Amino acid sequence: MLPAPTNVSIVSFNLEHTLTWLPGPGTPDNTHFTVQSLRKNSWQLVKGCARLKTSQSCDLTNTFKDSFYHYKARVQAITTTQKSNWSLSMPFNPLTDTLLGPPVVSVSGCGNCLLLQVTPPTSRGLQHSLSPTQLLYRQFTCKVRRTRDGSQFSMWVTSTEKTVIGYLEPGAEYCVTVTASTSFNPHSVPSEPHCAFTSPTAANTGTVPGPNSTAKRPHSVVQHSNTALVNQSYTTGTAIILHQCLHLLAIIVRNPWCLSVPQCLWF
């Protein structure tokens, strides 16, 4: 009997899934590998993974399409005359076990503010999965850091529309790092820092429309009252608490019904 494959694992990034393994000790050079997946109590051959070579892996993206289902996979070593025992993977749920990649981030200055645009990444897995992308990329954690002295604060962004981060220091450079945030998947990769200068107020050419402007306003405005950035006598911690309170107030103003649904007010 052939040695069974070892180190069987499922690697997943943005719902693109790959089964990997290592040949067992003493596996002959002419050995091939075959992969099966378990669905509804039945083991089925994975398309394209019937006679894989030692250096190859098995693409499970099209097999694991239902993001809410718990899957298993197994791999077997075979030659023309021998087979190994099956080696089983750990149970795998696409929605909770995939690694969420960084979102696409765009930042620009708008006077004493930053204009932030966050959109989900694109991948074959996200496009073909039965789970909507909104479930994984509906809410984001944003860390805003002033380059000059390292002062920073965090905020939630719950929309992929443009968001204004207000009450910042004019003419200063800020860097924003964004991470997808969900309650059911703790595995995520933050974006690279995206930096921009807040332009002086006089140089603001209309990025944020005035009260009488007919231009379309951003979908949401998160005004950051980080008083430490305006009055150095306040601590950064106090400013962060004030910002979160303003954010909560903005949610209530836009959605009064939230007062009767406490979960709506979670940050």
Score class of each variant (00 low, 15 high):
residue 176 V to Q: 00
residue 193 P to F: 00
residue 245 C to Y: 14
residue 237 G to V: 14
residue 267 F to I: 12
residue 227 T to V: 07
residue 192 E to A: 12
residue 191 S to M: 01
residue 225 S to E: 06
residue 204 N to D: 10
residue 248 L to K: 07
residue 214 T to Y: 09
residue 188 S to E: 00
residue 243 H to M: 07
residue 262 P to M: 14
residue 249 L to M: 13
residue 227 T to F: 08
residue 245 C to T: 14
residue 235 T to F: 03
residue 233 S to V: 05
residue 236 T to W: 04
residue 221 V to W: 11
residue 202 A to V: 12
residue 209 P to F: 09
residue 252 I to A: 06
residue 221 V to K: 15
residue 183 S to V: 10
residue 222 V to A: 10
residue 215 A to P: 01
residue 256 P to A: 14
residue 192 E to W: 04
residue 203 A to P: 02
residue 238 T to P: 01
residue 206 G to P: 04
residue 199 S to Y: 15
residue 203 A to D: 13
residue 249 L to N: 12
residue 200 P to M: 07
residue 236 T to N: 06
residue 205 T to Y: 10
residue 266 W to R: 13
residue 232 Q to K: 05
residue 238 T to S: 13
residue 205 T to A: 11
residue 198 T to R: 06
residue 174 Y to Q: 02
residue 208 V to N: 05
residue 237 G to T: 12
residue 206 G to T: 05
residue 218 P to H: 08
residue 215 A to V: 08
residue 257 W to D: 11
residue 178 V to G: 00
residue 211 P to Y: 08
residue 178 V to K: 01
residue 191 S to W: 02
residue 194 H to N: 03
residue 221 V to G: 15
residue 237 G to C: 13
residue 204 N to C: 13
residue 220 S to W: 11
residue 173 E to Q: 12
residue 208 V to S: 04
residue 229 L to K: 00
residue 182 T to P: 01
